[in-house]
Structures are given as C-alpha cells and as structure tokens.
C-alpha cells in the first residue's frame, strides 16, 4: 500500500483545487454571458420574452443544482452526444449561475427610478443609448457587490460536480479518504481549501458593498 504523508494529501488536494478554480471561472464567465443575454431579453418590453425568462429563472432556482447536473449529464447523452463530466458540469453550472445573476441584476436595475428611463426617452435617446449612458453606469455600481457575493455560490456549486464523477477538490477528497482512511483530516483540509477560496470573495463583496453604499 502506498503511504500518504500529510504533504502528499495537501499536494494532491491543491492540485485538484486548480480544477475547482478553473471550473468556477468558466462557469462564472459562461453564466455572466448567458445572464447578460437574458437581461437584455427582459429589458425589451416584450411580455412573452419576459415570461420565458421568468420561467427559466423559476426552473433553475426551483430545482436542486445536483438534478441540473444529472439532467445535463444524461440529457445530452440521450441526444446521442458523448458528454464528459467536465462539460456537463460546465453546462449545468452556467445555466444555474445565469438564472441567479439575472435575478440579482434585475433587482439592481429596478432600484433606478423609472423617471430616469422616461426622462432619457424624452431627451430623444435610443434604447441602447439609455442603457449605455444612463442605466448601466449606475446599475453596475449597485450590481458589483452582490455579483461578487454570488461567485461564492458558484465555487461551492462546483463541489457537486464530484457527484457526476469529475475530479475536483471534493472528489479528490473522497478519493484520498478512500486511500488513507483518515476522513477527519482529509475533509477538514478540503473544507479549509474551500474556505481559503471563498472567504476572500465574501470579504471583497462586503467591502464593495460598503464602498458603493457610501458613495451613493
């Protein structure tokens, strides 16, 4: 049997944590892009589109992320395509992230007084001009803190990719546990690494919130 020293465990966990970071980054960027598109759809005054976005949000916020992972994993293969756990996890996390970000950003855009939209329209600005010059600069300031805060959920969400067999931090933890039979130590280390990844994000979200609240 191979002996695992503490150093070996930590080294392996940190190696796996790189995949957690990568998965989080890709999912967060993907989620942001999808959420931007959905926010644009929501801002058009088409009630059917708005309703579709609302259904999308309800579907992804009302079902467990784990189910979404399973559905992406098995659903795509049902269509006849081979899908790796990595791609399924990215797909599921992207959809999940976008559903929450759209809702967060909606709140941010809605905090702006309606009069601003009306005033800009009276000044003869086009829809895109209003967005570009009036709405986005203000909404972005409000949105940045909760968005950074939500990125913590994305990092934690990647832990579920372990269930469909993608080897990231949590999966590496269970594998190391099976090899070393030291669950207390291994899972404590896993938790610490997640904490080290997430806490700076939480903290910066809090700082950003304070900073932008003062300036308003």
């Amino acid at each position: 049997m191979i002996e695992f020293s503490n150093y070996d465990i930590i080294r392996n966990l940190i190696f796996a944590a790189q995949w957690t970071v990568l998965l989080s980054l890709v999912a967060f960027i993907g989620g942001t892009l999808v959420a931007l598109a959905l926010t644009a759809l929501r801002l058009t005054r088409n009630s059917i589109l708005q309703k579709l976005v609302a259904v999308y949000i309800e579907l992804f916020q009302g079902t467990p992320l784990l189910m979404q992972m399973f559905l992406c994993f098995f659903g795509v293969s049902l269509l006849g395509y081979e899908i790796s756990a990595w791609s399924a996890a990215i797909l599921a996390l992207t959809l999940f992230t976008s559903a929450f970000l759209v809702e967060i950003w909606r709140g941010c855009i809605d905090t702006l007084p309606k009069g601003q939209w009306e005033a800009s329209r009276c000044l003869g600005m086009s829809f895109l001009q209003i967005l570009r010059h009036i709405i986005l600069p203000q909404a972005l300031r409000v949105a940045i803190a909760p968005t950074v805060g939500f990125s913590v959920q994305v990092v934690k969400g990647t832990a579920l990719a372990s269930v469909i067999g993608f080897v990231e931090l949590t999966k590496a933890g269970t594998m190391l546990n099976n090899a070393t039979f030291e669950p207390f130590k291994v899972f404590a280390m896993v938790a610490v690494i997640y904490f080290l990844l997430c806490y700076p994000l939480s903290l910066s979200s809090k700082i950003l919130e304070k900073k932008f609240n003062v300036s308003r």
């Binding site: 269970t174 404590a188 938790a191």
Partner: peptide, 16 residues
C-alpha cells in the same frame, strides 16, 4: 457560508 454543503456533510458523516 464559505464551504460547500457536501463537504460539511462528508465531514460530519465520515469525519466525526
């Protein structure tokens, strides 16, 4: 708040 639920669960069930 800064660790995934699955890790908390594993820690409690396997670790304790």
């Amino acid at each position: 708040r800064n660790t995934p639920f699955i890790v908390q669960l594993f820690f409690i069930f396997f670790g304790l």
